[in-house]
């Protein structure tokens, strides 16, 4: 008998004569406490919670964000930015920066990870990705990697910048996954990100920049 058969047989024997329990899921228990009555309230809550975990939040607009981002990166002395030219925000960024004569090098993701792993780990200073939504209740960004913006874009570079459209901020996780109907088709990897990587494993002292980004900047596009 295979391991699978043995395990399944014992589990089924354990349940013999009993019924599956009814589904008593009560969505109000995961939504009631986490309701906010306007986009402004959601933006405020998300901002407050993200800031509490060492994240910089800037409120900007569809038109202005490339400039705001540029200023932020210049202040930090960032030499290059990993971005996805094929995305709408990627192309907007490269156009805007080109016009203004950018001194920050824009790096596209170049081929499969195996071909440039070392460069990604050692030379990329910052990255920009979009997001599919936010969660006000917990101060969270939902990131849905794809071929244009691979999984590691939001993980390996020491500084990660995420764009978040204010209108896509849901009250809570339950609302977000229901309105976007995640269950009908999950991507290979879906991420909820709430701040830069952190650890409290040594004496419970909080330290940012454990293995992933040391810093996270969120640009909230208020008119989108």
């Amino acid at each position: 008998m295979s391991a699978r058969d043995g395990i399944m047989r014992r589990l089924r024997a354990g349940l013999e004569g009993s019924q599956p329990r009814p589904d008593e899921f009560d969505a109000t228990l995961v939504t009631r406490t986490w309701r906010y009555d306007s986009t402004e309230a959601r933006v405020e809550r998300l901002t407050r919670l993200l800031e509490a975990v060492h994240t910089e939040v800037h409120r900007t607009t569809q038109g202005d964000w490339p400039q705001r981002l540029y200023e932020q990166l210049r202040t930090r002395g960032i030499p290059n930015l990993l971005f996805a030219p094929e995305t709408p925000h990627g192309s907007q960024l490269s156009k805007a920066w080109e016009v203004n004569g950018s001194e920050i090098h824009l790096t596209p993701w170049d081929g499969p990870i195996e071909e440039w792993k070392e460069t990604l780990f050692n030379d990329v200073s910052a990255s920009l990705t979009g997001s599919v939504g936010g969660i006000a209740a917990t101060g969270t960004l939902a990131i849905w990697p794809d071929r244009h913006e691979p999984r590691l874009m939001s993980l390996v570079p020491p500084l990660h910048i995420a764009l978040l459209k204010a209108s896509t901020i849901a009250d809570n996780l339950y609302d977000l996954m229901q309105t976007q109907d995640w269950a009908s088709g999950m991507p290979t990897n879906l991420l909820l990100v709430s701040g830069p990587s952190k650890t409290a494993d040594i004496e419970q002292v909080l330290a940012y920049g454990a293995h992933g980004p040391k810093e996270l900047i969120t640009l909230i596009l208020e008119d989108a």
């Binding site: 919670l49 975990v53 993701w109 081929g111 499969p112 990870i113 969660i135 209740a137 917990t138 101060g139 969270t140 794809d146 071929r147 691979p150 999984r151 590691l152 999950m186 991507p187 290979t188 990897n189 879906l190 991420l191 909820l192 990100v193 709430s194 701040g195 830069p196 990587s197 952190k198 409290a200 992933g212």
Partner: peptide, 24 residues
């Protein structure tokens, strides 16, 4: 566990790298 409203990462994995994907 830690008194956190959520952890920094919730990593939801539903499959290996697809043919047209570039990492994973």
């Amino acid at each position: 566990a830690l008194g956190q409203p959520i952890t920094t990462y919730i990593n939801m994995i539903s499959g290996p790298r697809k043919d047209d994907e570039r990492d994973g």
